[in-house]
Design a protein around this nucleic acid. Structure first.
Lengths: 205, 205
DNA sequence: AGCACAAATAACCGATTCGGTCAAGAATTT
DNA sequence: AAATTCTTGACCGAATCGGTTATTTGTGCT
């Protein structure tokens, strides 16, 4: 893969996106090197020239995606955000920012979590172990609940937000055009409306 | 396909679900007859015995899915439900009921709308034309808006509900266990919470 | 039991595609 | 222009593709 990193960055990005898209859409077994090559606008031989084998390419993408998502999470400190909706917004903001740069990474990671191909089982277990810890930022805290007009709604709202996030990801995947920024605006408006209507008056600054 | 319809219904359902799942997950080109056969627990030869060809199988699934979804929509009258949330609930209820019987149909239909294989282009255009009309049941009506404390929230809430529906479908797809009924209960609770917090007091019966 | 008939599949077909290699051409450097 | 690096068309054996056929398996009937 030293052959690959010496390419000019624009070409690297093109190839990485093509590979992420193919693996994300088809899974490891069904994504062929030729698919990736055609989508990236290069020859199949180059794919093997750069990465050696299909498995090595997949491994490269795993660490690439893992590093990207983990670093984006690491540079945001969730602990000092005490409000539930603030944490939601911060989380969605950082995630949208990285997704904007790399639109195929979320689909790829999602598919990696359900990948079953024997050939990559070993490298997948390590990947899952490392990235698994970064999902615990949205847990409901004690002081969140008291802000709701009806405290029982807190958990329900959290479920709503989970479904919205899932739908948001699905929507991003299907939309060819990258209009993330406008959707992010809409997303913020939704969050704001939820907070405004579910919170007690005294917690609406 | 007369060979297929004379099978016992349970076997038909197994095969249909396997085919829907494979085509939905991989797309027409990447879903092989062998994939479907293995997933259905039958031999590849039987697939061709029942349906003749891969294209005929795909065509059968298209009409099957189209009929199912259209009939489930037709048997619910949205016009006499004047409240937005009631229409949401009714829509989600009927859709959940059909999804419970046939969990892979939504993924299949979603993939059919972005299918690009030349071999099935002709039958796809007809399918899209027929089923395209059935998406307009959740439009916002004039008398919905006035029920909101803040009328501007109406459209935002509709967006929230769309995202939730998308996330709901994605969630159903990933969950192996069919715990739809409990999720449907949760979904109803979410809808109820939304209505309770967004509507003016006078519209909460 | 044995027989007839249907249902299912193992084995097979030519064609295509698979992951991967290699040597020859195109670009670039010196 | 020579040397060196990049890129790729052509190719490899193996696997898989959609589809067919011949054999096995199961089932009812007598």
């Amino acid at each position: 893969m030293d052959k690959f990193v010496s390419l000019k960055e624009e070409k690297q990005v093109t190839i990485i996106n093509a590979a992420l898209s193919c693996f994300g859409k088809y899974g490891y077994a069904k994504a062929s090197a030729n698919d990736i090559a055609v989508l990236a606008g290069i020859s199949k031989a180059s794919v093997f020239q750069y990465f050696g084998s299909k498995k090595q390419l997949y491994a490269y993408l795993l660490t690439y995606a893992g590093d990207l998502i983990m670093s984006s999470f690491r540079q945001t400190d969730f602990d000092d955000k005490t409000d539930l909706f603030d944490r939601i917004l911060l989380s969605s903001h950082t995630e949208a920012k990285t997704l904007e740069k790399n639109p195929y990474i979320s689909q790829f990671i999602l598919s990696a979590w359900t990948e079953t191909a024997d050939e990559v089982r070993d490298i997948l277990t390590e990947f899952k172990k490392e990235t698994g810890k970064f999902r615990n930022n949205l847990i409901l805290r004690k002081d969140d609940v008291s802000k709701f007009k009806n405290p029982d709604d807190a958990e329900t709202v959290l479920q709503i937000l989970m479904l919205m996030a899932e739908g948001y990801a699905a929507y991003c995947r299907n939309a060819e055009k990258t209009m993330y920024s406008s959707l992010t605006d809409d997303f913020q408006k939704m969050i704001a409306a939820m907070r405004r209507n579910f919170y007690k008056e005294e917690y609406l600054l």
